[in-house]
Amino acid sequence: MRSCRDITALVSQGLDMKLSLGERLAIGVHVMMCSRCRNFQSQTQFIRKAAHRYTEQLQQQLDKKS
């Protein structure tokens, strides 16, 4: 059984590369039982979305200024 530290590291890696089937299964089984890692998973996806939105907004703000 992998620890929360290992699972969240995998979740993070999964945002930047394709994980193996085994790794994806390990995450799936773990987050079914662990709400904190489940939260981590959805929150890191949210952070990615926020980062993209942040860049778009920065661009719009700067456009208005010039």
Partner: peptide, 11 residues
């Protein structure tokens, strides 16, 4: 032991 210390609450 690799468990969360505190850790993510639901947003």
């Amino acid at each position: 032991n690799g468990h969360w210390n505190g850790g993510p609450t639901t947003w």
